[in-house]
Design a protein around this nucleic acid. Structure first.
Length: 426
RNA sequence: GGAGAAGUACCCAAGAGGUCGAAGGGGCUCCCCUGCUAAGGGAGUAGGCUUGUAAAAGGGCGCGAGGGUUCAAAUCCCUCCUUCUCCGCCA
């Protein structure tokens, strides 16, 4: 949610910022609503003051034997007027809410406008692996090495899903453990959140109202519940409606969950295998910060995500996204994209974002400023650390050998009983 | 899933239709005393949102959430949410 006061006081700035995300918003109706709201509050409050005074005088008047009935009648009349104003006010406030809630976050000033084409690669790690043989794609590798079973998953569940089998499951689990242990060592708090969330949680994260159709909803359950599309949705709601202490910020968390996404119709032939599925595993980092330390937090998250991929020895790059390619709720997003040789493209394994106070406003998450004693909105940040479904294929493809085997990165071996290589099964 | 009980400020807790933004503790801040500590004595400290203003003063709304009754609701009624206890079911 954007700050209405900022919109009123600096309309052009907000307008131009949103334009960078491709939203050309006419704020005139909002400004009108804002003024109407103030007028209505003024009027309603004035009547309420009168009413409260009259009502409070009743016991006194009674004692003195005055005319109580006259007071009753007067207050009743006032109540009718108050009701009228309050109804109008409720309508205006709802209109304001409806105006603001679908608007995206403002991108930070330094972002380029536009979409993907304006993303900037800011750093490249390692280089494209060179093969003196014809490298296989990860789907073939998974099959030959017996790591993943797509066909039976199609039978059991449907397309866009898979079984990790045997060493595939161990490799997946090793990745997750490698991520988790790294975050624990870095002092992040480990969280295992519920996977079924209520509607308010979706609103706070900024996934609703816009992306309601992208998540799985439980049928026949009241009140409505959905299955989390990312642990971020749960973590950002952890402190919903709370006032935190500044001395406890930043609060750094991480969680492991599968992520469940509909993404109906977005399945492309290019995205074979596990590049895009209805369910994938992800370790998510999250931070509650203050306006003072959120930038530093962001750098740390990006750095941590990069180090994880680096630790695996994979070639990848770090991109700063243009305004229009940032998530709806985010003021800035950096993507870590790992190289997939078979497609000769880079695929996102981590998305690090700073929402500034956008999500905090939606979820009413604040902190008390230690100096001024004032309550301020928190800044919320998140970064994948990491999503396995992209790392797994990249790892197989980048680490494959001429004999069809795949070398397990050093950091994962201790989680796989010391296995150094995966070999094709007969 | 069934049956009961409860949700009040940072925490515990009183409150039973007007004088309640809400007693009393604890905590916290300051002072005194005891060479330190423990203990004791005294004083102070109540939130959030919003309106208003140069700043204030002043208003309005807030006692889990939302409705209702009433001139007047923390207090009465309804719905929902949550927690606890008991029973059932179950990994």
């Amino acid at each position: 949610m954007l700050d209405i006061n900022l919109i009123i006081s600096d309309t052009k700035h907000v307008h131009d910022a949103l334009l960078k995300k491709g939203f050309d918003v006419d704020f005139a109706p909002l400004i009108k609503l804002y003024d109407e709201r103030k007028t209505l509050i003024l009027k309603s409050d004035e009547l309420k003051t009168k009413k409260n005074k009259l009502s409070a005088s009743v016991p006194m008047v009674k004692k003195q034997g005055g005319d109580i009935e006259a007071i009753f009648a007067e207050v009743k009349a006032l109540n009718k007027d108050i009701e009228k104003y309050d109804e109008k006010l409720a309508k205006v406030e709802k209109d304001i809410f409806d105006f603001l809630s679908p608007l995206p976050n403002m991108p930070d000033d330094d972002l380029l406008p536009g979409e993907k084409e304006n993303n900037q690669v800011i750093k490249v790690f390692g280089e494209k692996p060179k093969f003196d043989f014809k490298p296989l794609d990860h789907v073939e590798l998974c099959e030959k090495l017996g790591l993943v079973d797509y066909e039976r998953a199609a039978k059991v569940s449907g397309r866009g899903t898979w079984f990790y089998t045997n060493l595939g499951a161990r490799l997946e689990w090793a990745l997750l453990n490698y991520f988790i242990d790294t975050h624990i060592n870095d002092g992040y708090k480990f969280m295992l959140p519920p996977h079924i969330l209520n509607e308010e949680s979706g609103f706070t994260a900024g996934q609703f109202p816009k992306f309601k159709q992208d998540v799985f909803w439980l049928e026949g359950v009241e009140p409505k519940k959905f299955i989390l599309p990312t642990a971020e949705t749960a973590l950002v709601n952890y402190h919903r409606n709370e006032i935190l202490k500044e001395e406890n910020l930043p609060e750094k968390l991480f969680a492991y969950t599968p992520c469940y996404r509909c993404e109906a119709g977005s399945y492309r032939t290019e995205e074979r295998g596990m590049i895009r599925g209805y369910q994938f595993n992800k370790v998510e980092m999250f931070a509650y910060a203050t306006e003072k330390n959120s930038k530093q937090c962001f750098e740390e998250l990006v750095d941590k995500a990069c180090k994880l991929v680096e630790g695996l020895g994979l070639h990848f790059r770090l991109s700063k996204l243009a305004a229009g390619d940032c998530s709806h709720s985010m003021a800035r997003t950096y993507d870590i994209e790992v190289y997939i040789p078979s497609m000769d493209i880079y695929k996102e394994v981590s998305s690090a974002s700073n929402a500034n106070d956008y999500q905090a406003r939606r979820g009413n998450i604040r902190y008390k400023d230690a100096e001024t004693g004032k309550t301020k909105y928190c800044h919320t940040l998140n970064a994948s650390g990491l999503a396995t479904s992209r790392v797994f294929p990249a790892l197989l493809e980048q680490c494959q050998n001429a004999d069809g085997s795949v070398t397990i990165p050093q950091v994962l071996r201790k989680y796989m009983g010391g296995i150094e290589k995966l070999y094709p099964i007969k």
